[in-house]
Computed example of a mutant assay.
Amino acid sequence: MSGFMIGAIIAGIYITNSSDAVHHALNLCGSIHIADKDAMKGSLMNTIAKAKPTRFFGVPRVFEKMQDKISLVEKQNYSFLQIILNWAKYYASDYHLSVMNGTIPKYGGRYWFAQNILTSIKTVFGLEKCKYFLTGGAPISHETKKFFLDYDIRLYEIYGLSETSGGVAFGDEQIKDFDAIGRPVNGIKFKIYKQNAEGYGEICIKTRSNFMGYVNEPEKTNETLDSDGWLHTGDYGCLDEQGYLYITGRIKEIVITSGGENIPPHHVENLIKTQLPGISNVFLVGDQILKAGPCSKVQYAIADGIKRANMNAISNAQKVQKFRILPNDFTMITGELGPTLKI
């Protein structure tokens, strides 16, 4: 019997985007394990170790917590073991990155040996039987994807909404970069509405699984479903020549500069988080002024990281000019985060 691990944030409040993962697991005659209410406080890894899942789904925050735990355990290794682990991580990561670039490296038995070393690490966390690692519900950083590649784990993204009855686009082994989400499921149509010169616009979906409307909210229903049956997601992105979906953010979150340039916040936020991995959340707010901040040393370190992030900005308009540190992290209780931990 296979174990289908569902990375629930809080049991009973959020279990995947809908019940489709539960239904899929039951179709496979699989067992289902739901993390307890303290999952994000450290108990998740204990649940995983007991469940030994063959398939694992979690929102990005789940994988970030796993990343923190694995990193902590790794730092406790002796120097000799760390050298062996780094060797294995190099070949695992290089193998997957080469596959993404369309080549199969010839390592002889080195990749096989690296896999066996990393499997021993996975066993500690109950992940040795897991074949598929799936994530969705919110954007996931390049850093987290790369971290798990080092452990011979490739994260596949799922895109879907409650209004589409679950996932409508899935990642696959042919994806060439970390920005691509995946390709539409057979029978599901995508189009980019009001696309600009670069091909970006609102993502629209047409499928028999689209919902019929919001209960007692005809105006909201008409805004979301047009007369031709296309569901307007409110997400901003594009489709490439191979049909892969890219998402840069929500239309309502797009920052428009005085020069008329549209800036997707997610891209800028990811640049900063890449340079400053110790930061929990980054939120681009345009030209608003936020008042808060810690000591001058922390301010200086963050300012230096933002300078490095600005060096990779696509244009001057996308360079961060000012920042403020909020006194508290974003949480569901205080209203900054939704059930899928999106801002």
Rank of each mutant, 00 (worst) to 15 (best):
M311C: 09
I314F: 10
N310E: 05
G335F: 10
C295I: 13
V282G: 04
G286N: 07
E269V: 05
V298S: 13
A292G: 15
H267Y: 05
A313H: 05
I306C: 08
A303K: 11
T257W: 03
R308M: 12
D287N: 14
L271V: 05
A309C: 08
R324D: 14
K322R: 14
N312Q: 14
N281L: 06
P294V: 11
S280M: 09
V268S: 00
G338F: 09
V255P: 00
K273L: 15
T334F: 09
Y300V: 12
H266K: 01
L271C: 07
E336C: 06
N262M: 10
N328G: 00
A292F: 15
N312P: 02
Q299R: 07
N262H: 13
K319W: 00
I314P: 00
G278Y: 07
V320Y: 02
Q275M: 15
V268P: 00
H266R: 04
R308S: 13
I325Q: 08
G260D: 04
Q275V: 14
E269M: 04
L271F: 02
V285H: 06
G335H: 10
V298E: 14
I325M: 10
K291W: 14
L337V: 13
C295Y: 10
V255K: 03
N310V: 07
P277M: 04
G278D: 06
